[in-house]
Computed example of a mutant assay.
Amino acid sequence: MRVAIADDDPIVCSSLSTILEATGTADVAWTANTGTDAVTQYEMDAPDVLLVDVQMPGMDGLQASEAILDAHPNARILILTTFADESYIAKALEIGTKGYLIKQDVSSVIPAVQAVMAGQVVMGAEVLSKLRVSPQSTTSDESSSVDRVVSHDDAQAVQGSRNPDSSGPSERFAGLTERELDVLELVAEGLDNREIASRLFLSEGTVRNRISDILAKTNISNRTKLAVEWLAWH
């Protein structure tokens, strides 16, 4: 695959490039040190996956990602940053990026890039904990739905965010019907609506309505958070 990197630190760009190429994971198509340059470079040479830092001079990484996704809705963008800020994470999910990782272990980049290339959404363990939704949340739309949702470093990320002493999440899912739980399981496995419909012998419209009902009953704001909650607590 071909990967591009947008980070304001040239050393980070160089280090990531070395790791990706030395391991045979990907060829690095280009690097950029500002959000504006990332948008310009993407227009000239779209990579398979784009790694983007959040804080960059001028146009930041989230603004750049939004501009790219507006023009290229199928762009695979993975946020890679030192900031586990809830507003940044929420914005990244809202605009349709394919994941959010914290720069705490460069070795995590390889499986994350591979997962994003496979159509998955990747969350770091710290990000999973930030995504826990308050039971008082009242939004129940599915505007930020995604095709795939996985936890980064699978079991490690999920286990790292669990809190066995909390009864909130189990109460959150207690009101779901058996059929809704079937749908939820498949959402958490990363199936899209068409695949869920095929698996459960339902129409896509029915699946979409079931997911909307699940979001409303659980007071979770979107499909991504729904899957993350289930993975983290079930």
Rank of each mutant, 00 (worst) to 15 (best):
S170T: 08
E171A: 00
D165V: 10
P169V: 02
S151Y: 00
S161L: 01
V146L: 05
E171C: 00
A155E: 01
E171R: 00
E178G: 02
S137P: 03
A174Q: 08
R172S: 00
S166A: 11
D141M: 08
S140C: 10
S166G: 12
S137A: 10
D154I: 03
Q136N: 11
G168H: 02
A174C: 10
T177H: 09
N163M: 15
D182V: 11
S137Q: 09
Q156G: 14
L176D: 06
S137F: 12
E171N: 02
G160R: 14
E185P: 09
G175I: 08
K130C: 01
H152Q: 06
A157M: 04
S143Q: 09
L128A: 15
V150P: 02
V133D: 06
G168I: 14
N163P: 04
D182P: 10
D153V: 00
L184T: 07
E178K: 14
V149K: 07
L128S: 05
S144M: 13
A188N: 10
R172T: 01
R148L: 00
A174K: 08
A188R: 07
D154H: 08
G160W: 12
V187G: 14
S143Y: 12
S167D: 09
A157L: 10
S166D: 14
P169S: 11
V187E: 13
E142R: 11
D182S: 14
H152N: 11
F173K: 04
S167T: 14
L186N: 13
A157C: 14
L128D: 07
P164W: 07
V150T: 11
Q159C: 15
R179K: 13
K130M: 05
S170V: 01
L181R: 15
T138I: 05
S167H: 00
G175M: 10
R148W: 03
V127I: 13
G175K: 03
P164S: 11
V146E: 00
S151G: 09
R132L: 11
S137I: 03
D165A: 15
A155R: 09
S144R: 11
P135R: 06
S140Q: 07
T138M: 02
A157E: 01
A155Q: 13
T177E: 04
G168C: 02
V187C: 07
L131R: 00
S167W: 00
H152W: 02
G168D: 15
D165T: 14
P135I: 03
D147R: 08
F173D: 06
D141W: 06
V133R: 11
A188F: 11
V158Y: 03
S145G: 12
A188M: 15
G160D: 13
F173L: 12
S167A: 07
